[in-house]
Amino acid sequence: MAIAITVRGPEWFFGVDSLFEGFAALALLLITLFSFKAYRFTKDKRYRTFAIAFAFMTLGMVGRGVSDLLVYLDMQVHPLALIAGYAAYMGLTIVSLVVLFALTMKARQRAPLVALFLITFVAVMLSSSYRLSFHTVSLILLAFIAYHFVKNYYQKKSLTALLVCGSFVLLALTQAAFIADILRHKLYIIGHLIHLVAFALLFLALLRVLRK
């Protein structure tokens, strides 16, 4: 069976995307660690679930960053290793988004969420255009999550809530940019730039929390 990996974006951008992903992974890791700290402090399961969601997202981002870096460095690795990296990114991101979706929607029952994960995961992995499916599924889930953060900002009216809200709205937009890129081949860099700004906002939000 032939395995094909499509590398997107201009050649000069290879490596830069890995740097962006490294920064995103760092921001995600810090949120994961803070959530675990919050869980240890309160023993409240919400923080543990939140930490698990962000831990999955962090691992996924590391998987993608490493795969992109291997492509950039033109290392002679087995294509399966690259596929594993991208598959880990997609799988772990979907898990984390489903968990975040459940948490923000305050869903109590597990069975519908497991079903949602399996449906989205299988739909992405079995799709002939897996990237398109992945970004579309992510866009849908992120739109719901971002909606929660927009509502939360209007309730709390704090700058930190605004940063979080802005970050998730931009993350949803990033998915839209990647979908547009697949269809038109022009928005890869714009998608990555929005991605970077989204994680910078998340990073700033955490800095504001830590300054308290």
Partner: peptide
């Protein structure tokens, strides 16, 4: 107190 303030800011920011 310091931990609690951080926690409250975090919880409010994410609407948890």
């Amino acid at each position: 107190l310091a931990n609690y303030r951080q926690l409250r800011e975090f919880t409010d920011a994410f609407g948890l």
